[in-house]
Computed example of a mutant assay.
Amino acid sequence: MNRGKELIEELQSVISGKTLDALVPPLLFVLLNNRVGLPLASLISGIFALSLSLIRIFLKQRWQYAFGGLLGVLVASGFSYITGNASNYFLPGIISNVFLLFLILLSLLFDKPLAAWASHLSRGWSLEWFWRSDIKPAYREVTWIWALLLLMRVVVLVVLFISGDLTRLFVWRTVLGWPLTIGVLLISYIYGIWRLHLLKGPGIEEFTSGKSPPYKGQTRGF
C-alpha cells in the first residue's frame, strides 16, 4: 500500500496539470482541419492554447506547460501553413523526439546517463552521488529503457508521418505520448529503486551526511 501511494505521489509531481495542455490543442487541429481548412484550424487551436495559458496565469496555476504548449502549437501550425500540409503540424514534435533520442544516446556514450541528469535537475541531489559506481548502473540501465522506448515512438511516428494519415498520426502520437510516458516513469521508478537496492550503495541522505557502510540505501525517490 505504501509503495502504491508513493508511486502515485511521484507521478502526480510530474504530470499534474500537463495532460490537458498537451492533448487538446492538437486534437482540435485534427478535428477542425477537414471541416474548416488548415488556416482556420491552426488559428483556433492557437487561440485555445493561448486562452489556456491565460487561464493558468489567472488561476495562479502552473502556466509554463500551457505556455510551452502554445509555443508548440504556433511552431507546428507555422510548419503546416507554410508547407500547406496538415501532417507537418506534427513534424516539430517528431524532430524533438529525434533530438531527445540523440541526447540520450550521447549521454550513454559518455557514460553520464540522462536519467541521472534528469533526477539531479528535478530533485537537486548532488551529482557526485549519481556518478558513484554503486549508484550509476541503475541510472544507466534506466536510460537504456528510455532509449529503446523512445526509438519505438520515433519509428512509429515517422512511418505514419510519411503515410500522411493525419487521424492515425494523432491517435498514435497520443498513445505514445502521455500514456507511454506514464508507463516509462512507473517502470523507471520501480526498476530504479530495485536496482539501487541490489547495488547496495548509500541513499542520498546517507551520502550527504558522510555515513559509512553498511548502507540502508535509497528507499524513496529515484
Score class of each variant (00 low, 15 high):
Arg3Ser: 10
Glu6Arg: 05
Glu6Tyr: 12
Glu6Pro: 03
Leu7Ile: 15
Leu7His: 11
Glu9Ile: 09
Val14Met: 11
Ile15Val: 15
Ser16Ile: 06
Ser16Tyr: 11
Ser16His: 12
Gly17Asn: 07
Thr19Phe: 12
Leu20Pro: 00
Leu20Met: 11
Leu23Trp: 09
Pro26Cys: 13
Leu27Asp: 07
Leu28Thr: 02
Val30His: 07
Val30Ser: 06
Leu32Pro: 10
Leu32Asp: 11
Asn34His: 11
Arg35Cys: 08
Arg35His: 14
Gly37Ser: 07
Leu38Ala: 01
Pro39Ala: 05
Leu40Ala: 14
Leu40Gln: 14
Leu43His: 01
Leu43Lys: 01
Ser45Gln: 05
Gly46Ala: 15
Ile47Asn: 04
Phe48His: 05
Phe48Glu: 06
Ala49Trp: 00
Ala49Met: 00
Leu50Ala: 14
Ser51Asn: 10
Leu52His: 13
Leu54Val: 12
Ile55Tyr: 04
Phe58Trp: 09
Leu59Gly: 05
Leu59Phe: 14
Lys60Gly: 12
Gln61Ala: 08
Tyr65Asn: 08
Gly68Ile: 02
Gly69Asp: 00
Leu70Val: 00
Leu71Glu: 12
Leu74Pro: 08
Ala76Pro: 09
Ala76Gly: 14
Ala76Asp: 02
Gly78Tyr: 02
Ile82Ala: 11
Ile82Val: 13
Asn85Ser: 07
Ser87His: 03
Asn88Val: 01
Tyr89Val: 07
Pro92Cys: 10
Gly93Glu: 00
Ile94Asp: 01
Ser96His: 01
Asn97Leu: 10
Val98Ala: 00
Val98Met: 01
Val98Glu: 00
Leu100Asn: 08
Leu100Pro: 01
Leu100Met: 12
Leu103Glu: 09
Ile104Arg: 05
Leu105Arg: 01
Leu109Gly: 07
Asp111Glu: 13
Asp111Arg: 10
Asp111Pro: 02
Ala115Gly: 07
Trp117Leu: 05
Trp117Gln: 02
Ala118Gly: 15
Ser122Met: 04
Gly124Pro: 00
Trp125Asn: 10
Trp125Leu: 09
Glu128Asp: 14
Phe130Lys: 05
Trp131Pro: 03
Ile135Arg: 08
Lys136Met: 05
Pro137Asn: 05
Ala138His: 06
Tyr139Arg: 02
Arg140Ala: 04
Arg140Leu: 02
Trp144Thr: 07
Ile145Glu: 12
Ala147Trp: 05
Ala147Tyr: 09
Leu148Thr: 09
Leu148Ser: 14
Leu148Val: 14
Met152Arg: 08
Arg153Glu: 03
Val154Ala: 07
Val154His: 06
Val155Asp: 07
Val159Ala: 14
Val159Tyr: 13
Ile162Asp: 03
Gly164Asp: 06
Asp165His: 02
Leu166Tyr: 09
Arg168Phe: 06
Leu169Trp: 01
Phe170Glu: 04
Val171Met: 12
Arg173Leu: 01
Arg173Gly: 04
Val175Ala: 15
Trp178Pro: 06
Ile182Trp: 12
Gly183Gln: 12
Val184Met: 12
Val184Lys: 06
Ile187Pro: 02
Tyr189Asp: 06
Tyr191Ile: 15
Gly192Tyr: 11
Ile193Val: 15
Leu196Pro: 03
His197Gly: 04
His197Gln: 13
Leu199Val: 08
Gly201Tyr: 08
Pro202Phe: 09
Gly203Pro: 10
Glu205Gln: 15
Ser209Pro: 00
Ser209Lys: 13
Lys211Asp: 14
Ser212Ile: 00
Lys216Met: 07
Gln218Phe: 09
Gln218Glu: 13
Thr219Ala: 10
Arg220His: 15
Gly221Ile: 05
Phe222Asn: 00
Phe222Lys: 01
